[in-house]
Write a protein that binds this DNA or RNA. Structure first.
Length: 200
DNA sequence: TACGCGATGGCCT
DNA sequence: GGCCATCGCGTAC
């Protein structure tokens, strides 16, 4: 089986995990319908010493509570009153690290994803952006806390090896409020992929 | 192509 | 009450 298991998520280096997730696949099976694709863009958020992270310096609230649990679960939250963003909790309990999935290359269940996005053509607009990924995959706030080793939302390693020099790292999107931490190069993208988001 | 901006709700001060 | 880990539409060239 190629499904990523618990030990993948419970490692301590969220930046490394974020980089490794490029080239992995994410799948959902909502009401029996399989959809998914190859991950081409991620961002790492570290609970310790990262002002851009919702759970930084022990900020433990109703919203962030799940981040303090053991890695391998979903952190989904609402942004701008409209969009849900999907994050993967990593690390051991009490550490509160997470990886945001920002873009995927659609491979599975494309007709269903087109329906969910109200699109007729398959273009990067389908899944290039964190709010668009959740729409296409059918992920919403009710998936907060979902176990990613289960059969609703999961990740797979299909054996593709992405060379280190094919991964671009740069500052994260939309975190200017985080001061110096906004400069951390914790956004990872697959080089030459047309499926990544355009935002700087 | 490149912007400006409104939508919309929950979180946190 | 201000601020978001965003997106898509409109206007202007």
């Amino acid at each position: 089986m190629t499904k990523l298991a618990k030990p993948f998520y419970t490692r301590p280096d969220v930046v490394q995990i974020s980089r490794e997730l490029i080239g992995k696949y994410i799948f959902t099976r909502m009401d029996g319908v399989l959809t998914g694709g190859r991950i081409v863009e991620t961002e790492a958020y570290c609970g310790e010493n990262d002002l851009a992270c919702h759970s930084h310096s022990g900020r433990r609230t109703t919203r962030t509570e799940i981040m303090f649990q053991e890695g391998g679960m979903a952190y989904v939250y609402l942004i701008y009153g409209i969009y849900c963003l999907f994050n993967i909790i990593t690390n051991v309990a009490e550490k509160a690290d997470a990886v945001l999935i920002r873009a995927i290359e659609p491979t599975e269940g494309i007709p269903e994803m087109l329906l969910r996005r109200n699109h007729t053509q398959v273009t990067p607009k389908l899944t290039a952006g964190p709010g668009l990924v959740t729409l296409a995959l059918g992920i919403s706030k009710k998936h907060y806390g979902t176990d990613l080793t289960g059969d609703l939302i999961w990740l797979e390693d299909l054996g593709e090896l992405i060379p280190e020099n094919q991964i671009i790292s740069s500052p994260r999107v939309g975190v200017d409020y985080a001061g110096e931490d906004a400069l951390l190069p914790w956004r990872f993208r697959l080089k030459n992929s047309r499926w990544t988001s355009k935002a700087k």
